[in-house]
Structures are given as structure tokens and as C-alpha cells.
Write a protein that binds this DNA or RNA. Structure first.
Lengths: 302, 302
DNA sequence: GAGGTTTCAAACGAAATTGCATGAGATCTA
DNA sequence: TAGATCTCATGCAATTTCGTTTGAAACCTC
């Protein structure tokens, strides 16, 4: 609109911005109580703030209808704008975090469950010891965390980021191959090719379709009907492999930590494991973020 | 960016929005004291709010340098985003005002000085009597007020609005013609055509170039060198006409209120006076605005 | 229909924020 | 260089806001 701000209209923004936030949270969450929860405050406070905003703007935003509130048409219209205000507020928070030059504070790292269990403890332990003021939240998920919405500050992913707002760095990932338990091999034999394993069960790390597509890209075709056992929680799936329920794919270094596990399908392709650390472009220069970033880079092999 | 708000990231907007506003005002005004003035609060309060924001974001926004503050590079970057937040806040205020269904409150009307003196008093008097809770600010300016920035809520202009956000309604403006004082006519005679007035002084309502261009569009060519006396304050210019200093253009109904004034240049074109009332599209349906709008329409002749 | 679980609203005491007054430092003018 | 006028920082009293608690009404489940 207008970039020049020679004279700002201060009257137009003189309403209480926190009350606007309370209204936003209430409308989004659907209730005063819900808003109070997400804002880490209490229901009476949110209620008073919304009422005060209504009085200040001279507009009835909600209609008190039994339990819960209902947006009035005016409220819906105002909400649109307040929502935009919330979006810009999130951007304020983002660039501020990117400029944050204190080491103290929180960094949220999103990793897969296997990494959380097998490789992160050492790294986080070293980090916590080296930087006592650093607070780290480990978000364990096998879905790709939404860095754009800042569910996490840094994510360890298995692929390069596609969003232009994100920047990533590839790590020297290990190799992955097929494994099974010693018990499984004793019972079924150790297949050397996929043809040998036609009738053997495979443990998947996600829906069979996804697994088949993923491996198909690497020239490996799983037998039809395999992978009826799967879990998106890789740790759980791997436990099934260890229990001798079937064949699974695992990174060599992690497989090496499990006892009683042997490689199978020796003549099939050994697959490289893509590993990326990813963060938001704006956060890249935050001292705190960079500290964690460098440590991850070093310990995971940059 | 993302229109879907299935789950909002509430942590990202959990900083104090009023503190952000304090920072915005401070940065824009250049000092804590200045910010305190525009925000109708005190300097210690603004100072504490800005400091608290710095602490919350972990970013040094200002560098305390003797008298006054200087934005840090980080502060400048954050300011950009907070400025965007301020813009959206202004929009909140705008649509809220448009939905405001209370009669009580302020309406700012922007008019030319002549209108302010000659026609508004009656209208505003009637309005104030009919609606005791209505508060009206009369902004007197011959520049077109920036309705987009809400310097005024309603403007009476001499041309149709060009901005798409504004809506206007044409009024039945009066006719305008050339006038001079009786004393002037006694001394110089009453010219009937522009040729007769070649050597007579003209009083302008703005820079001679503007006047010449404006009248040229209507087929009237002022003598070269006329209009060396002018004032953008039309009232002042008209006083010069009344004092017999020269010939001036005036709307008939307003000229009729001045004694000792007679029409001159009778054979020249009589010019229609364009008259529009203009407001912001969003404000159109505010009860308060509509009330004033309808009154202006009625009394000024819709 | 009773019990449990929500919701919002009201009252009261506590805590945080605000405003005023004051002081110290810097800039500008004479 | 001295005075005036700005600026921001600090201490203290007063107001406002907040959180806790309680109550009443609506919804869901059994």
C-alpha cells in the first residue's frame, strides 16, 4: 500500500493489541477457556479482554449463546483482519528469534524416533554440558515438522527442503540395507536376492504403498503382499524386526547397535540414507540456533 | 502465505503485542518521549515496555546513545515486521469502525475553509442537537485529506474520488462566477468580458499555474500576470476580494453572504461547482458515519 | 433423568503496571 | 562557558489488571 510513513495515524492503532490477540485466540479456539489455555492465562482474563475490546471498538464480536460463543457477522469481519495481524506478529517473532543473540533460551529440534533414541542423546548431552543456559526441546516425529509455522527451529530430515524459506545442509548419511533377526534367518534362511524372499514378511516404516514406491525408485521391488506389518513409529517397526517378525530396512550404524541382527538380501542394492539438517532462513543467524546447527553438523558429519 | 489455520502456532505470538506497539511508536517518533505523546501515555511506561520487549525477544532493539535512541540493525529488521503489524492493526480499526453500530463516538469531517465557515455551522449545530452523543471533529484543510489513512472519516471534496477504496456521492453544487467588491468596480469599472479585464488583478485560490490550468479547462483564459495575489486559504483570498484588491471566483451562495460584493465579467461562462462527499468503503455502513453522511446529503443537496 | 464435564460470569485479594516526580546526561543557543 | 531545553533512567504511590475461587447454566453420556 503506502510505504511512506511520514505521519502515522496513531489513533487508528490505539486500541489494546493484547485484547486483539485475546479475541483472535478466542475465535480460533472457539471458546474463552480454549483461548486461555493457548495463551497461558485464565478464562476470566480472556473474557474481560474480549469484552473490553468489544467496548473499545463499539462492535459486538461474539454472541453469548449458552455455553460457548458465536461470532457475529461483524466479529467475523474483524477476525479476518486480526488474523492478518496475528500472521504479521508471527513474523515479528520469527525475525526477532533470528536476531536473538543470547545463548540462553529454547531450541526445538525435530528428529525421527530412531535418531532420538540412538544418536541424539550423546549430542544433546554434550550440548547441555557445554552450554548450561541452552534449553532444548526434542520433538520426535516421523512426519516432516512444519518449520514454516515454527513447530521446530531445526529439523533433521531425510530429504532436502523444498520450501524457499528454508535452508538445508546435506550430511554424510550412512548406508542402509535389509536386516533380519538371527532367529528369523534360522527359521527362514538368509535370502540373497529379492526372488529368494518372495514369500517372506517385510516390516514397513509406513503404509505399504509408500514403502513400495520409495524402494521402487531405487530399483528394488518388494514382493506383493509384503509389508502388512508396519508402523510409522520406526522404533516400533524395528522392534518387530528384532523380534523376528520379518525383514526390515535400517541404517547400518543404527542396526549395529541392536544385537542379534544380521544383514540379509546381500545381493540387493545398498541404499544411501539421505540426511539433511534444515532450518528457517530467518533463524540461520541466531547465535543460539547456529550453535546447535554447528554441533549437529559436526557430530552428524558435515 | 497460508490461509489454512488448522492449528495456530500460539507460542510465536505470545509476546506482548502492546510492547510491540510501544516499540513501533518509539522507532517512528524517534524517542520514548515522542512515542509517549502519540500513545497518550508517559515516557517511563513506553521505556519500560520497550525494554521488556527487548528482554522477551532477546534482541537489542535500541542503542542508548546520549539523548535519544538509535535503532540497532536487529531493531531495524524487527521494525519492518512490526510496521506491517501496525498496518494490519489500522485495518482492524478500520473495519471495526465500519461495523460500529453505536451513535456515540467521533466522526471527523474534512472540509474546505469556506465550507467550514459558511455552511458547516448550521449543519453541525443541527447534528449536535439531534444526536447529543455524537462527537464531531471538523478538519479544515484545502488539501484533500487522506481518507485512506483515516485522517478524516468523511470529506467534502470538489472532485470525485479516484481511489477504489473510497466511495463518493455527487451533490448538487451551486454555480460559481467572478466577483469583485463594490469599491473595486467603482474604481476599475465592471468588466463584461475577459478582454475588458486584461489589466485587472485577480485573486487566486492557489498558485497561478494551477488556477490558470483549472480555468483553462473550462474555456476561460486569465490574463497573463494576473493572480499574483493568492492564498490557499480560500477565506483569506476571499477577504482580499472583499477588500477590493481584485477579482475572484466564488460560489454564488457563499458570495451572497458577503455584503458589498457584486458579480463581474457577466458575459463569461458561469462555472458549476463540483461537490462530492466521500468516505471509506469500509466505513460506509457504520451507523454513526451513515448518520452524518445522510445529514450532509440532505443539507447540502443530494 | 442423574451425574459428570464442559462452558461463561461475578467477587475478592494479590500482583503487576502505570503515572508522577525527580535526577543525570547530552545538545543547542547565546 | 553558562543557561535552557531536550533526552532517558529511577523511586514511590496509586490504580489497574490479573488470578483464584465460586456459582449457574448448558451439553454429553450413561
Amino acid at each position: 500500500m503506502c510505504v511512506m510513513h511520514l505521519c502515522m495515524n496513531w489513533d487508528a492503532i490505539s486500541f489494546d493489541w493484547n485484547q486483539a490477540r485475546a479475541f483472535l485466540a478466542t475465535a480460533e479456539e472457539g471458546s474463552l477457556s480454549g483461548a486461555a489455555r493457548v495463551l497461558h492465562t485464565t478464562q476470566p482474563t480472556v473474557g474481560r479482554q474480549v469484552s473490553a475490546l468489544e467496548a473499545a471498538l463499539g462492535v459486538a464480536l461474539f454472541e453469548r449463546v449458552g455455553r460457548g460463543l458465536a461470532l457475529t457477522p461483524s466479529g467475523a469481519e474483524v477476525l479476518e483482519e486480526v488474523r492478518a495481524m496475528g500472521d504479521t506478529a508471527a513474523r515479528v517473532s520469527l525475525v526477532a528469534a533470528g536476531r536473538n543473540d543470547t545463548v540462553a533460551g529454547k531450541v526445538a529440534i525435530s528428529v525421527s524416533d530412531m535418531m532420538a533414541i540412538h544418536v541424539m542423546p550423546d549430542i544433546l548431552g554434550a550440548l547441555a554440558k557445554a552450554e548450561p543456559e541452552l534449553e532444548i526441546e526434542l520433538i520426535v516425529t516421523n512426519d516432516i515438522s512444519d518449520l514454516l509455522r515454527r513447530e521446530a527451529d531445526i529439523a533433521v530430515r531425510h530429504m532436502a527442503p523444498t520450501e524457499p524459506e528454508l535452508i538445508g545442509r546435506e550430511l554424510t548419511g550412512s548406508k542402509a540395507r535389509f536386516y533380519a533377526s538371527e532367529g528369523f534367518v534360522q527359521r527362514h534362511g538368509n535370502p540373497r536376492t529379492m526372488a529368494d524372499a518372495q514369500d517372506m514378511p517385510f516390516i514397513g516404516f509406513g503404509p505399504p504403498e509408500d514403502m513400495a514406491r520409495e524402494l521402487g525408485l531405487r530399483g528394488i521391488n518388494l514382493p506383493a503382499g509384503s509389508g502388512r506389518l508396519y508402523s510409522k513409529t520406526i522404533f516400533a517397526a524395528w522392534q518387530m524386526v528384532c523380534a523376528g517378525l520379518g525383514i526390515g530396512i535400517m541404517a547400518d550404524d543404527i542396526a549395529a547397535r541392536s544385537s542379534g541382527i544380521v544383514p540379509v538380501l546381500a545381493e540387493e542394492e545398498v541404499m544411501p540414507v539421505d540426511l539433511w539438517i534444515v532450518t528457517h532462513r530467518e533463524l540461520r543467524h541466531s547465535r543460539r540456533i547456529r550453535l546447535v546447527w554447528e554441533t549437529l553438523l559436526e557430530r552428524l558429519g558435515g
